[in-house]
Simulated scan of single mutants.
Amino acid sequence: MSNPIETRLTELGLTLPDAPAPAANYVPYVLSGNMLFVSGQISIGPDGFITGKVGDDLSVEQGADAAKACALSLLAQVRAACGGDLTRLKRVVKLTGFVNSHGDFADQPKVINGASDVLVDILGDAGRHSRSAVSAAALPFNVAVEIEGIFELA
């Protein structure tokens, strides 16, 4: 039986990274009942960390690309939590996005749209979620974006 999520990733030309290991004393996700809580995923691309302050070092579009990378890492953690079976993913419930930016930057929602948009592209209505998008004075490793997520599993 084919996996529609993996098929859709292929159609979009996207691949999920390996689920990143935690960088400190925490676990990458916690499963409680059918709810999966995924720790914050930082912006990492093929060449390493995506760093800098959005609105200063990076454009809003580059920030959105960093958020998209976070969303793919979130899905990689979901896949790991499901033993490789993404068909267990029922829906994205909530994202909380942090944007490395200065106090006068006001386009955090446009940045986090990079994650929201790709999740809807991949999952359709199951990718629609509640969300917060906030500014952060600094993020670990000077990354541009960090996003945590809550997911419902079947």
Rank of each mutant, 00 (worst) to 15 (best):
T10W: 10
L12V: 14
G13V: 14
L14A: 08
L14R: 09
T15W: 04
L16Y: 02
L16K: 09
P17E: 14
P17W: 04
D18H: 11
A19S: 14
P20I: 10
A21C: 08
P22V: 05
V27N: 02
P28I: 06
V30I: 11
G33V: 02
G33S: 01
M35C: 08
L36T: 00
G40I: 01
S43Y: 01
S43M: 05
I44H: 07
I44C: 10
G45H: 02
G45T: 06
G45N: 05
P46C: 08
D47V: 06
G52F: 03
K53S: 00
D56F: 13
D56K: 14
D56P: 05
D57Q: 12
S59N: 05
S59W: 10
Q62L: 08
G63L: 04
G63K: 09
A64P: 05
A64Q: 09
A66W: 08
A67E: 07
A67C: 08
A69N: 13
A69W: 03
C70E: 04
A71T: 08
A71E: 12
L72N: 06
L72D: 13
S73N: 13
S73K: 10
L74V: 13
L75R: 00
A76F: 11
Q77S: 15
Q77Y: 00
V78D: 00
R79G: 00
A81D: 00
C82E: 03
C82I: 07
C82H: 00
G83T: 03
G84V: 14
D85Q: 03
D85A: 08
T87K: 13
T87Q: 08
R88N: 01
R88C: 06
R88W: 03
V92H: 03
V93P: 05
V93T: 11
V93M: 10
K94Y: 15
L95Y: 07
L95N: 06
G97C: 03
F98V: 09
V99N: 01
N100L: 04
N100A: 09
H102W: 11
H102M: 12
